[in-house]
């Protein structure tokens, strides 16, 4: 497995100008039928970079990060993740997915499995980790998200915030190189948002490459290296958080920020 991966990586790097960017998107377009969701997206992400993507609803920000692990298919342009090109080749898709973790708005835990089983499923079946070892790793991550005592419960018995932390632990158990967050706090009650954000901040401190679609501007200010603003399927503006919030260049960015920071 390691050999194929190195071979694929080497091959891909040659065609991607040998840069050290872990994600590269060039001239990417996506349509839903006639609807042009993503228009000419160009984005490079360095390893360990923390990016927050924001924008009004329907601006294509979720679709963008879902293209990175092929939950959505792009129709034009190219995407390289970890040096591997995303094409219809299932082998490449599998290679990329095992390096990219994803946390969803609605957690998407597996309700018929315990918290521990949720966390060990990927390592056991995708990475062929022995069960004992996978459980030890899972307990480590559950401790890191501060819910080891819930390991034997079912997701349905946990609160929303706890479920989302389990979902984060579940992704981390696969030891991904990149983590994608698709509005991880949008479905949570206000009092639970903090516990999830704290977990994400801690994760950011460990040097994980993170792409977060979120409306939590406080989080963006604290951890982001770069904030990207999208509208109408385009990247309108990107900048480091200070300049982005204090000195937005584009009119639409100013409007958006004034709307969400108004109260």
């Amino acid at each position: 497995m390691a050999e194929t991966q190195t071979a694929a990586t080497a091959g891909a790097i040659g065609s991607s100008k040998g840069s050290d960017d872990i994600i590269q998107i060039h001239g990417m377009h996506k349509w839903y039928g006639d609807f042009h969701v993503l228009k000419d997206i160009n984005l490079s992400v360095k390893a360990k970079e923390r990016i927050v993507i924001c924008g009004p609803s329907g601006s294509g920000k979720s679709t963008l990060i879902r293209c990175i692990n092929r939950l959505e298919e792009h129709q034009k342009g190219d995407i390289y993740v970890n040096g591997i090109e995303l094409t219809n080749d299932l082998k490449n898709i599998d290679l990329i997915r095992r390096e990219v973790g994803m946390v969803f708005q609605h957690f998407n835990l597996f309700p018929h499995l315990t918290v521990l089983e949720n966390c060990t499923l990927g390592p056991i079946w995708v990475r062929q980790t022995p069960k004992k070892e996978a459980e030890a790793i899972a307990m480590q991550y559950l401790e890191r998200v501060k819910i080891p005592e819930q390991a034997l419960k079912f997701p349905g018995q946990l609160s929303g915030g706890q479920q989302q932390r389990v979902a984060i632990a579940r992704s981390l158990c696969m030891s991904p190189k990149i983590m994608l967050f698709d509005e991880p706090t949008s479905a949570l009650d206000p009092e639970m948002i903090k516990e999830v954000l704290d977990t994400m901040i801690e994760l950011a401190d460990t040097g994980m490459t993170m792409l977060c679609v979120t409306h939590e501007m406080g989080f963006a200010k604290t951890v982001a290296d770069r904030v990207i603003f999208m509208d109408g399927g385009e990247i309108i503006e990107q900048n480091e958080p200070h300049s982005f919030f204090d000195n937005p260049q584009h009119e639409r960015t100013q409007l958006f920020l004034s709307q969400i920071l108004a109260h």
Binding site: L71, R98, N108, F110, P111, W125
Partner: peptide, 25 residues
Amino acid sequence: KGQYEAADSMGLKYWQSMRLIILPQ
């Protein structure tokens, strides 16, 4: 749909995600 997506994003193959995630439910 989220169950399929969660299984996919983990890198499970079609038959794995059917057998372990979708069919049991």
